[in-house]
Design a binder for these strands. Structure first.
Lengths: 206, 206
DNA sequence: TTGCAAACCAAGCGCTTGCTAGGCTAGGTT
DNA sequence: AACCTAGCCTAGCAAGCGCTTGGTTTGCAA
C-alpha cells in the first residue's frame, strides 16, 4: 500500500523518480544533511556522493538551498500522503490517534527518515521565503493532528489542551530519531503504544 | 535560593563571574549560538558582541570550540546544582518528579536557557573529545532522573519503562524551547503539571 | 616610578566555501 | 545531415572563515 502511494505520487510529478539523476541527488542530500548537517555538507560532498563534480549540481538546482528545500518538500508530501491513506482505514478516534503516532514515528525512523529529520533539524537554514513555503505545507499537516486531538478531547480520551499536547507529543516523537533503533529490543509497536498511553487516560474499567 | 546557588558556584570557581570579560563573552556566546547556531556565529560576531576585535578572543579561549564547550559546561553545572538543591526540599516521589520537570523546563526557558539550548542543539559541533567530556557530565545528570523514575515505577506511579519514558520526556521538554513563551497564556506551572500528568497515572479515586 | 602581566589591537595569511562561465559530448528530433 | 538540449566537466573567482603574529595599552603591585 505504501509502495502504491509512492508510485502514484511520482506519476503525478509530486515526487521525483528516485532512479533519475535528480532523485539520486535528493536521496544522497537527505542522507548527508541528516548525518552531517546542512552547513557541514559542502556542494562538493553532495556532488561526489552522486559521482559528479560540484559545478554540475547547479545544472539541476539553482543553488544549495534549493536542494535543501526540495528534500523537505518531498519528505512532507510523502508523509502526508502516507498519513491520509492510513487514517482512511481507521474509524475510531483512538485508532486514528494511534495511526498518527505510528506514521510520525515511521516517517522519522523508516525509509523517509532522512528527509523528515532534515525537515525538523535543518529548518533554520532556509531563507525566509523558503521557510514560509515549507510552513504552509506543515500547517496542513498539523491540522490533521489537531482535528483528531480535538475530537479526542470531546470524547474525554485526553484531558490536556490539544494544542499543548500536540507540541509535547511532537517533541517526544521527533526526538526518537536520536535514540530509537528499530532493530533494538524495543519494538516499533511497543514504542507507539507507550506514546499513546502518555497521551490518553487508561480505559476506565467498568 | 537560586541566587545563592549561583554565587557559591562562582566562589568555588565552577562558574565564571558573569561580570568579568570572560563571563560576558560566555553570556553573549550562549545567546548567539542559540539564536544563529554555532556554525553561523563567526568569531567576529562573538567579538563584536562584547566590544572587542576577533583576534582578541583567542586570548581568552584557545579556539572557537573551546568557547562552545565552556558555554555547555557552565550550563550543565548550573542546572545540576539547581536541581540538587530543589530535590533536597521534596520528599515524595511525585514531588521529586515534578521538581525534575520544573527544573528542566526552567533550565531551558529561564535565565540559563541560552546555555542549555546550546547543550542540546549544538552538541554535534564538538570534537569527539569534547563530546565525551560533556557526555560524562550529562550522564550524571541523567542518573538523577533515572533514579527517581525507577522509584516511581516501584510505587506504580508510572507504568512505562523508566528509560523509555525519560527519553520521551526529554524530547517533549527540550522541544518547549521552540514554542513555549513564559509570558504567554500558558503558565509555567500549568505546563509543568501537564507534563507530569503525561508521565503518571491519574490518582486513583477511593 | 618602574615592572609586569592581562587584555586588546592591527594586519593579514591560508584555506574552504558556494557558485560561475564557457566548452564538450551523447542521444534524440527534424 | 543538421540541429538541439540535457548533462557534465574544467578552471577558477570572490568572499568569508578561523586563527596567528607582533605590537600596544591598561591596571595593579612593588
Amino acid at each position: 500500500m505504501t509502495q502504491g502511494v509512492e508510485k502514484s505520487l511520482i506519476e503525478q510529478g509530486v515526487l521525483v523518480d528516485p532512479q533519475s539523476a535528480r532523485g539520486r541527488l535528493l536521496t544522497q542530500a537527505a542522507r548527508l544533511f541528516r548525518q552531517k548537517g546542512y552547513q557541514s555538507t559542502t556542494v562538493r560532498d553532495l556532488a561526489s556522493a552522486v559521482g559528479i563534480l560540484s559545478g554540475s549540481l547547479f545544472h539541476h538546482y539553482q543553488n544549495k538551498e534549493a536542494i535543501l528545500k526540495a528534500v523537505m518538500v518531498e519528505g512532507i508530501h510523502h508523509t502526508m500522503a502516507r498519513m491520509r491513506s492510513e487514517l482512511a482505514e481507521e474509524h475510531t478516534t483512538q485508532g486514528r490517534l494511534r495511526a498518527l503516532i505510528a506514521c510520525e514515528l515511521d516517517a522519522l525512523n523508516g525509509d523517509w527518515g532522512d528527509a523528515m529529520a532534515v525537515v525538523i533539524n535543518e529548518w533554520r537554514f532556509l531563507s525566509d521565503g523558503g521557510q514560509q513555503d515549507i510552513l504552509a505545507l506543515r500547517e496542513e499537516y498539523e491540522q490533521m493532528w489537531l482535528e483528531i486531538l480535538y475530537q479526542a478531547r470531546k470524547e474525554r480520551l485526553i484531558t490536556a489542551s490539544p494544542k499543548v499536547l500536540r507540541k509535547l507529543l511532537y517533541g517526544a516523537i521527533t526526538w526518537t530519531d536520536k535514540w530509537f533503533d528499530s532493530r533494538g529490543k524495543l519494538s516499533y509497536q511497543e514504542l507507539t503504544d507507550t506514546i499513546l498511553q502518555l497521551a490518553i487516560k487508561p480505559a476506565s474499567d467498568p
